[in-house]
Simulated assay, not measured.
Amino acid sequence: MHRITVVGGGFAGLTAAITAAESGATVTLHEAHHTLGGRSRTADGPYRTNEGPHALYRGGPHWSWLKQHGLLEPIAAVPALEAGRLRFHRGGKLHRTPPLALLRLTRRPAGQAPVGQDFLSWATSQVGETGARAAAHYAAVALYHHDPGSLSAAFVHARLRRAASLPPEAHFVRGGWGALVDRMAARARELGVRIETGSHLTELPATEGPVIVATSLDAARILLGDHSLHWPSGRTTLVDVALRTRRGDAWVISDLDAPGWIERFTAQDPTLAPAGEQLIQGQLPIAPDESKTDGAAHAERLFDLGFPGWRERLTWRRSSVAAGRTGAVDPPGTTWRDRPAIRRGDGVFLAGDQTAAPGALAEVSFNSALEAASLALTSSGVEVAR
């Protein structure tokens, strides 16, 4: 029988395993952690936090695939009432509307921004420096990078357009992404995928058939002994707080003076926190010389503005740093095609969010997983199920 091994049980690994199994391959999946999910895990307990928002963009390819497989629902959209509580931080104050220059940039046609120029320079030539900086900082919600203006103009502009689309493309898995992981794992097992958790591999398994490595790039570099597996990413302080509910709190605060995003996730999914409480997350990109404390202080300044009396209402708090776990960012002169290739040779294929695959956020993991599974199946002489 045609055998395929998948290393990594996150979103990419499960997508690859399901795709391979649907085409008739015998699939074994190894996950080092005792639970599946990778960075798509949702915390246990009364406060169901994710490592970042993990928004599903409605226009993305994984949306259609999950829907076709019966894995998408239940899903939550942004309530119309809450959308009116989006606030923009400029000059130390919260505003209800963004600068006109930012809106003008979001309406520039896709593909107009150049690959070889940094976003800040290009955007400044279009709308002036003040508007360009505001747009770069707003785009950080889809980048997790401390200096979005330094990245490729084409890369940032594509994500700016999607992050600012109306109606919002972003939807959210009810119960957190862990609920989606559970549905995907159940589907994989139905197809006969053998899932081994707590299986920490230090080298590629000695097995017949192709191997799909669906881990972080750092883990893949060690596992494959391939020092070429590098690509820049972001570094972000995540601050999760639970507050007693108060009417009138902001839904989102987008910091336009510096990259930063605060979101009240119970606005679209009340199940994430106990009744009478709301779960809020701050995502504050930090530079290489900054610490988690710097990011947390930034979050608190925004909390002070959008959530009056939040310290007295605080019931729970947690903070962490997401380093190298925020997806690829493309410097000027590069595109997704320049990232580490999916095909590694000798029957080994790479999947994950820092690989040579298109898309935003989780779409990169998904697209690379489909491509890796397709290449692995083809190399085994298996016709890919469509």
Rank of each mutant, 00 (worst) to 15 (best):
H30S: 02
E203N: 04
A179E: 14
T315Q: 00
R107K: 00
P274D: 08
N50Q: 11
H54L: 09
M1N: 07
R104Y: 07
P114L: 09
Q268V: 07
R104L: 14
A351S: 09
L143A: 09
T197K: 10
R108M: 15
G52Q: 04
T378G: 03
G345C: 01
H2C: 13
E73R: 10
R162M: 06
G111L: 02
D255Q: 11
H54D: 11
S150K: 01
T334H: 12
G260V: 13
A258S: 01
V78P: 03
G91C: 08
S64A: 12
F88R: 00
A185M: 05
P99V: 03
W231K: 02
Q278W: 11
D44E: 13
A110H: 00
Q117D: 11
H2F: 01
R39S: 12
L279P: 04
P288G: 05
E363G: 08
A20W: 07
A123C: 04
W63R: 15
L224P: 12
A250Y: 13
A55F: 09
A32H: 15
V252N: 10
L100N: 03
M1F: 09
Y57I: 08
T197D: 07
Q283N: 14
A219Q: 03
I262D: 12
L370Y: 00
A20Y: 03
H89Q: 09
T335Y: 03
R3K: 15
A267P: 09
G37T: 03
R247C: 04
G260A: 13
D294W: 04
H171G: 14
I280R: 08
G91Q: 07
A139S: 13
